[in-house]
């Protein structure tokens, strides 16, 4: 399971991708993934507006995750 990080999410983690495969408890859903990120990187707690895509498709909190999924974390950006 690979996470691709964009915008402020990339800045928070300090890398543009992380591999979750070797985690002891891999998040089972998008909702769990958000909790995982907030626990691992506390700065995620303040991001109230975060789009998540699983295999290039927008995914709500209820969407289940499986190994091999490519997950994109997409915060809104405002610059112009």
């Amino acid at each position: 399971m690979e996470l691709l990080l964009f915008g402020i999410a990339k800045d928070i983690v300090g890398e543009s991708n992380i591999d979750l495969s070797d985690q002891s408890s891999v998040p089972q859903s998008v909702a769990e993934l958000k909790l995982f990120l907030s626990a691992e990187y506390p700065d995620f707690q303040k991001l109230t507006s975060l789009a998540i895509a699983v295999n290039s498709e927008y995914a709500g909190d209820e969407v289940l995750l499986k190994s091999g999924d490519e997950i994109a974390i997409i915060p809104p950006v405002s610059g112009g």
Binding site: F6, I8, K10, I74, P75, P76, V77, S78, G79, G80
Partner: peptide, 9 residues
């Protein structure tokens, strides 16, 4: 269209 650092949407 919007930007952040080295990225755009």
């Amino acid at each position: 269209g919007a930007l952040h650092g080295f990225e755009g949407q």
